Amino acid sequence: MRTYNWAILGLGNIARKFAQDLALVPQARLHAVASRSLAKAQDFAAEFAVPHAVGSYADLLAVPDIDAVYIATPHSEHYAHALLCLRAGLPVLCEKAFAQNATQAEEMIRVAQEGRVFLMEAFWTRFFPAIAQALRLVQAGHIGEVKHLVADFGFATPYQPEGRLFNPALAGGSLLDIGVYPLFISQLFLGMPSAVGAVSTPAPTGVDLNCALALAYPGGATASLFSTIAAQTDNRCVLYGTKGQLQLLGRFHAPTGVQVQLAGEESPQVFPSPTQGHGYHYEAAHVQECLAQGLTESPLLPLAFSLQLMQQLDAVRQQIGLRYPGE
């Protein structure tokens, strides 16, 4: 079996977690890292024993034998950095939110498909074993017909106008950073909504501090979703069905199991699913499986799904009046 040489473009906190988890992936090796600062790239490379470190993103294209690039820059930069790699023929795993808006996502997908280069959104939640378990239970009708889904994701962070989370130029706000998770999980279980309602509370910089969504689906289900960067929430997801309810255990975006409470039964059924590391290794292993099969997109997280998610994010931003510079 061949070894896959990974590169990381953008060396923030999430890149460090991904690098740590890559050690858990069979036949994976961190081969190159790229930062706007050569010193930062060299320090990162020294920490993880990486043979190649470059001080610009363009210089990454000159590194030989790269099999896949993980893009971990801010949301506002995903479009440019994905295109940089895709046009060079390098397979891309791009952090969520996939792009700043659906127009950018469409162009990323077009370039990938025309060049027959692999592209996938790095929505790590999709690849946790507990998610697969929950989908099996719901699709088998274990809790009956799903009527409502609730999901929230929130944490409290100090207000820093120039920081990534509050800066409009970096596509800041709760929605694209963490609100995308409740929206993702609702799309995964319920599909595309027929109606979306959204309200938000703006931060002084204009990005959303809180964002609350109410959605309706063609099949008759509804969803209540919430994100905030002003308060710690439970980070829960519960699906309510005609026969009972299903909850993703732990933080729903990185679940450690599934719990099912059927109507009329005293005790819930628990399906534990312990994880290793941070959980990023699941998506990396999946990318390698796709590349080994010669695929240009994932069957579990197809590009059409990511585009639909971006279209929903655009619709929400239109309702709450959130525009980013240049839009």
Score class of each variant (00 low, 15 high):
residue 228 T to G: 07
residue 229 I to P: 00
residue 229 I to Q: 03
residue 230 A to F: 04
residue 230 A to V: 06
residue 232 Q to A: 15
residue 232 Q to K: 08
residue 233 T to Y: 00
residue 234 D to K: 09
residue 235 N to S: 14
residue 236 R to I: 12
residue 236 R to Y: 03
residue 237 C to E: 01
residue 237 C to F: 05
residue 241 G to T: 00
residue 243 K to R: 12
residue 245 Q to Y: 01
residue 247 Q to S: 10
residue 247 Q to L: 10
residue 249 L to G: 00
residue 249 L to I: 12
residue 250 G to E: 07
residue 251 R to F: 08
residue 254 A to H: 05
residue 254 A to L: 11
residue 254 A to M: 13
residue 254 A to Y: 02
residue 254 A to E: 14
residue 256 T to N: 14
residue 257 G to I: 13
residue 257 G to A: 13
residue 260 V to I: 12
residue 261 Q to I: 15
residue 268 P to Y: 00
residue 269 Q to A: 12
residue 271 F to I: 15
residue 272 P to A: 08
residue 272 P to D: 08
residue 274 P to S: 08
residue 276 Q to W: 08
residue 276 Q to D: 15
residue 278 H to W: 09
residue 279 G to W: 00
residue 282 Y to A: 03
residue 282 Y to S: 04
residue 282 Y to V: 10
residue 283 E to R: 00
residue 283 E to G: 08
residue 284 A to N: 09
residue 284 A to P: 10
residue 286 H to F: 11
residue 287 V to S: 00
residue 287 V to T: 02
residue 287 V to R: 02
residue 287 V to C: 09
residue 288 Q to K: 08
residue 288 Q to S: 11
residue 290 C to Q: 05
residue 291 L to P: 03
residue 294 G to A: 11
residue 295 L to C: 10
residue 295 L to G: 02
residue 298 S to V: 09
residue 298 S to P: 11
residue 299 P to A: 04
residue 299 P to E: 01
residue 301 L to Y: 00
residue 301 L to W: 00
residue 302 P to L: 13
residue 302 P to G: 11
residue 303 L to T: 03
residue 303 L to H: 03
residue 304 A to H: 11
residue 304 A to D: 14
residue 306 S to L: 07
residue 306 S to R: 03
residue 307 L to E: 04
residue 308 Q to I: 06
residue 309 L to A: 06
residue 309 L to N: 01
residue 310 M to F: 00
residue 310 M to Q: 07
residue 313 L to H: 00
residue 313 L to N: 01
residue 314 D to F: 01
residue 314 D to M: 03
residue 315 A to D: 06
residue 316 V to R: 01
